[in-house]
């Protein structure tokens, strides 16, 4: 059964349509991811879901409550972690948590069980001011504060931006645990590896949802072939391939370039061209696209269409 139903939702600010006719269904106790570039409308969508903005048209039902008509009730059921650090810097760790509990008419003791796995890790620093915590600890405190009133829905806007790789792993482990306790989680992120940890993800760009799928299946949407090409002089190689007539697109990917050849161009052709240009230690292999490739492809395609339409 769908726990969150978004139906033909639109929101504009002046001339800018931030959210365009978005429809989504999120299941109960699902871990649902929203990925998209800066300015895609992710935060606006999240603010509409958390009753902080009013839609122009369309509706959102959270459980059987409406975000416009029943916002007061809903606010007690939503745990929200905004993108920017949302806590009070001059209050201590413990004071922040107490504050959020009290605002919702609860107490730390009442829902300690729900936050204890997370809060325990920062409890040794409970007298420290929130402003003096490291990035990873701030995220843990913010998550504890979003959970302390035992929400049905947990909505997180880019929760791990600026957090190191190890703390990110821990953070997502926590989300898995919360999901196991029946909380419906909606999380936006610019990290593609995080998308892989969601049950389903939606790709958003320019206010519209471009695809909704299981993250493992999204790579199948990649059109055409993909090769990983590497050489000693990566920068020159990229410059060369970018301008090459054989190549559709090139992007940097860790230690290699991901290259999509133009229709009808064979890998041998590309290789011999690169060799001919004098690139040393050339490696070239056919690879399976990952979610990030699809994302880049979809986005650049849309961008090209826009440019052409101008």
């Amino acid at each position: 059964m769908s726990e969150i139903r978004i139906h033909n939702l639109s929101k504009s600010f002046g001339k800018i349509s931030a959210v365009r006719d978005v429809s989504l269904e999120i299941h109960s106790a699902e871990l649902f991811g929203l990925i998209g570039p800066d300015g895609a409308g992710k935060s606006t969508l999240i603010r509409l879901m958390t009753t902080l903005l009013l839609p122009d048209t369309g509706e959102i039902k959270m459980g059987n409550l409406d975000v416009v008509d029943d916002y007061k009730q809903l606010r007690h059921m939503i745990g929200y972690m905004p993108g920017k650090f949302s806590l009070y810097h001059d209050l201590s760790v413990e004071e922040n948590l107490t504050f959020f509990a009290t605002v919702f008419g609860s107490s730390i003791e009442e829902n300690y069980d729900l936050v204890k796995d997370i809060y325990r890790q920062i409890e040794p620093f409970k007298k420290r001011r929130a402003g003096n915590l490291s990035g990873g600890m701030k995220q843990k405190l913010a998550l504890s504060c979003a959970l302390i009133h035992k929400p049905t829905f947990l909505i997180l806007d880019e929760p791990t931006t600026g957090v190191d790789a190890v703390s990110r792993v821990e953070f997502w482990d926590m989300l898995d645990n919360l999901k196991a306790q029946g909380i419906t989680i909606f999380v936006s992120t610019p990290y593609m590896d995080e998308a892989m940890r969601c049950e389903r993800v939606a790709l958003m760009q320019d206010g519209s949802i471009m695809a909704v799928d299981n993250p493992g299946d999204i790579p199948q949407r990649f059109p055409g072939k993909l090769y990983a090409i590497g050489a000693d002089e990566m920068y020159q190689l990229k410059m060369y391939l970018q301008d090459s007539e054989l190549v559709e697109s090139v992007s940097l990917f860790g230690q290699s370039l991901h290259v999509v050849p133009k229709n009808g161009v064979s890998v041998q052709q590309m290789k011999s061209e690169c060799r001919h240009k004098g690139f040393k230690n050339l490696t070239c292999k056919s690879i399976k696209p990952v979610i990030e490739d699809v994302f880049i492809e979809l986005m650049s395609k849309q961008k090209k269409e826009q440019d052409a339409g101008r």
Binding site: G36, P37, A40, G162, P190, M234, Y235, K238, L252, I296
Partner: peptide
Amino acid sequence: DEPSSGVDPITRRQFWDMIYEAAH
């Protein structure tokens, strides 16, 4: 110092193109 934190994948790549260019 963490120049690309919170920036989407396409922009991060454009950003790294600029870094390569500067190093070059």
